[in-house]
């Protein structure tokens, strides 16, 4: 029996294909416990070969069913598939109901597939804070394709675009008119559109609205501010004019219609990223974003550790009483740790 209580034992077992070790590693990383960092350090150099596919869209558009179909199609090509399905944590109880597996029952019993459900645990961007690390773990474990399903997002949760290589935005008929389609946000991050439930009335109108939006031209945005954190998140650069135009695919996931074409589009986008050099650019952007976020957390911890809690509490009190503004207060704290 392998020793699953140490980082080295877990990594050795994971590399031998021990699925329980893989599941345990993911838990350690998700819980950010004492083993998390040694595990990440050991696995990081092993990762990088997988193609990472993000699937996002409003609740009820059929993301889970689509992921189920895509995974089956990849398996038919002999490719192994890791799936990370994210669902929201209740802000009140801290609990979560993770129900994406209900739609993925076709994938049961296949050793070439590994599905992990994750709760957002307070994160708002459609992913959990540790999702990227869990995805990296599946990558390091040797899965050729890793599909990341976000929570059913609204319009501004675009974090997935800085995690995945290929982002699929799932739409369904009847969710909104053309004006929704030209609003900024989630539609701009799509590498591929899937109009799911295409057997329903209005599917052609949805396709047309997306086509119109695309015909109006892409945007030059390359950086966004991460929700409420004042933290820039790099997005992939807008493709050159002769580059990639997001294709729109009609699918009926429950009947496995249009899935093969969708998977072909993913592979085409993968090829495009590779020979255009964009894959390297995206990986570098992701590394920069990741490093910046980790650095921010570390510096925050260090600052908070270096200053007596009572002093911070006194400043909080002063800010609440409007004796000082929060920006000056923060600067005062930073000055104390650097002087």
């Amino acid at each position: 029996m392998p020793d699953l209580s140490t980082a080295s034992g877990l990594v050795a077992a994971l590399n031998e294909g021990n699925r329980r070790a893989l599941a345990r590693v993911i838990s350690h990383i998700e819980n950010n416990d004492a083993l998390a960092q040694p595990l990440l350090a050991a696995l990081y150099p092993q990762a990088g070969a997988a193609h990472l596919i993000g699937v996002t869209g409003a609740p009820g558009t059929g993301k889970s069913t689509l992921v189920n179909g895509m995974a089956l199609a990849f398996r038919q090509q002999g490719l192994t598939v890791g799936i990370v399905a994210v669902d929201p944590t209740s802000p009140f109880s801290g609990g979560a109901l993770l129900g994406d597996r209900v739609r993925m029952r076709d994938l049961a019993g296949d050793p070439g597939i590994f599905i992990r459900s994750m709760a957002t645990r307070g994160s708002l961007g459609g992913l959990a804070q540790t999702t990227a690390d869990v995805v990296m773990t599946l990558d390091a474990a040797g899965f050729a394709r890793v599909i990341i399903e976000t929570v059913g997002v609204g319009q501004s949760e675009v974090e997935i675009a800085s995690t995945a290589h290929t982002t699929i935005v799932v739409e369904a008929p009847g969710l909104g008119d053309e004006v929704q389609a030209i609003k900024a946000g989630i539609l701009e991050i799509a590498d591929i559109f899937a109009v799911n439930k295409a057997d329903r009335e209005g599917a052609d109108r949805t396709v047309m609205a997306l086509q119109m939006m695309l015909a109006l031209g892409g945007t030059g945005h390359q950086q966004i501010l991460h929700h409420g954190r004042m933290l820039p998140v790099d997005l992939p650069p807008a493709p050159p004019a002769d580059g990639w135009t997001p294709p729109i695919h009609k699918t009926v996931a429950t009947q496995n219609q249009g899935i093969a074409a969708l998977v072909e589009a993913i592979e085409a986008h993968r090829g495009y990223l590779q020979h255009s050099g964009l894959r390297q650019t995206r990986d570098r952007l992701r590394a920069a974003t990741e490093l910046r976020m980790i650095l921010r957390d570390l510096l925050l911890q260090r600052t908070l550790a270096a200053i007596p809690a009572a002093d911070i509490a006194a400043l909080v009190h002063a800010v609440a009483a409007r004796e000082i503004d929060p920006y000056s207060a923060a600067q005062r704290l930073v000055a104390r740790t650097t002087s």
């Binding site: 699925r19 329980r20 599941a23 944590t89 209740s90 801290g94 597996r101 209900v102 049961a108 590994f114």
Partner: peptide, 27 residues
């Protein structure tokens, strides 16, 4: 869920092997 647990709900008609597999993957 309301008690603060993370509940992985797999739905009906699960075979014993499906249950064991889900329990393993979800740790």
């Amino acid at each position: 869920r309301d008690a603060g647990f993370e509940v992985i709900y797999t739905g009906i008609r699960q075979t014993p092997d499906m249950i064991a597999e889900a329990a393993l993957q979800e740790d």
